Amino acid sequence: MPLFKRNPFGHILFLKKWLIRIFGVISHGRYRRFNNLQIEGSEILRNLPENNVLFVSNHQTYFADVAAMFHVFNAALKGRDNTIKNIGYIWQPKLNIYYVAAGETMRAGLLPKIFAYVGSVSIERTWRSEGKDVKRQVKMSDVSNIGKALNDGWVITFPQGTTTAFKPIRRGTAHIIKKHKPVVVPIVIDGFRRSFDKKGLQIKKRNVLQSMVIKEPLEIDYENEDVADIVTKIEYAIEQHPSFLKVLTPKQLEEEQDFIESRRFWGADSKEKESKKKL
C-alpha cells in the first residue's frame, strides 16, 4: 500500500491504520479484562461482500459500541469465532469500515476528531442540535457521503439516532436502503449502557455482561417494500419495536434475570465461578 494512499474521504490509510492499532490496543481491555464481551454470529461477517454492507444496530453509548464492533469485525475476518481473544487481529485491520455519527459529537474535542478520522461519516441531525429539538432539511451532502462510504466498504449506523432505548427508527435509514440496496445486517447489543458512561469513554461498572448478537442479513424487496415496511423490519431486527417494551411483575423480572444469566452460553459463567473459587 502506498504510504500516502487515501480513501474516498481524503483520509490517509497509513495514518488510519495506525490509529486503529493504537486505539484497538487501548480499548481491548474494556471488553476482555474489565468486562467480558460475549459475541454471537461473528461467522456471518466472513460471508459478506467487501462493500455495500450496512449494519443497523441499537445504540447505548457514543463510542464504546462502535469500538467493540471494530474489534469484533476485524477478529472475525481473521478467523476468530465469537471471540476477540489475542489482539493480533488488529495489526492488519479492515480499513474500509465506517460509522454514521452526529457531526456535533465528532467535533466536540480533540479525541472525537481523532475518532472521526478512523471512520466517521459525520452528518447533521435534522431533529436535534446542541441538546434542543430542531426541524431542518436533510443535507444532500450527508446522504451522498453515506453512499460514498457504502460504495467503498462497510457502514455502521444507529437508525434511532440516539442512545435512548425504544426511540423511533429514523426513516432516512430506510431511504438509504432503498436507494443503495445494501446488504443489511442487524446487530443487537446490550450491557454497554451499564458498563460505560454515556460517551463510552469511562468505565462505570466492571464485570457486566456485555453482549453483541450479529444476525443474518435482512431479506428486503428493495423495489416493492415501502419505507414504512423497512422501518418496521429494522425495529424488529434490532429488538427496538414497541412490542419488546413491556412492564414486568417482580416474578417476571426474576425470570427475566434468570434468562439473561442463561444467555451466558459463551462461557462467562465458568469464568465467574473460577474467580469466586479463588476468593
Rank of each mutant, 00 (worst) to 15 (best):
D133L: 15
S122A: 13
I146N: 00
W127S: 15
N145M: 03
S144F: 11
S129A: 13
V134T: 08
K139M: 11
I123Q: 01
D142Y: 07
D142W: 08
P112C: 04
M106Y: 03
S120I: 03
K135Y: 11
Q137L: 11
A116G: 08
E130G: 12
W127K: 15
G131C: 11
P112V: 07
I146G: 01
A108G: 07
L110V: 14
R125A: 03
K113Y: 07
V143F: 12
P112N: 03
I114S: 02
V138H: 02
L110H: 08
A108I: 05
S122V: 09
R125S: 06
R107P: 03
A108Y: 11
K135R: 15
N145V: 00
V121G: 00
A108P: 05
I114K: 05
I114N: 04
P112L: 03
T126D: 05
R128H: 12
N145Y: 02
E130N: 14
S120R: 00
A116E: 04
P112Q: 02
M106E: 06
K132H: 14
S129M: 12
I123E: 02
I114T: 07
R128I: 06
G131V: 13
V138I: 15
K139C: 09
E124S: 12
T126Y: 08
K139I: 07
M106N: 05
A108E: 13
S141A: 11
S122R: 03
V134G: 12
V143Y: 07
I146M: 06
T105D: 07
R125K: 13
D133E: 15
R125E: 05
R136A: 11
S122H: 01
A116H: 02
W127C: 10
G119F: 03
Y117L: 04
E130T: 13
S120V: 06
A116C: 02
L111H: 03
S141V: 15
S141W: 02
T126M: 09
V143Q: 06
T126G: 07
V121F: 00
T105L: 12
S122Y: 01
R136S: 14
K113E: 08
E124P: 03
Y117A: 04
L110P: 06
S120Y: 00
R125N: 07
K135H: 14
K113D: 06
A108T: 11
V118N: 03
E130A: 15
R107M: 13
V121M: 01
N145E: 08
I146V: 13
M106T: 10
S141C: 05
R136E: 13
M140S: 11
Y117W: 02
N145L: 02
L110S: 10
S122I: 05
P112A: 04
L110K: 13
K132Q: 14
S122G: 05
T105C: 07
N145H: 06
F115H: 00
S144G: 09
F115P: 00
W127Y: 15
K132V: 12
S122F: 02
R107C: 12
W127H: 15
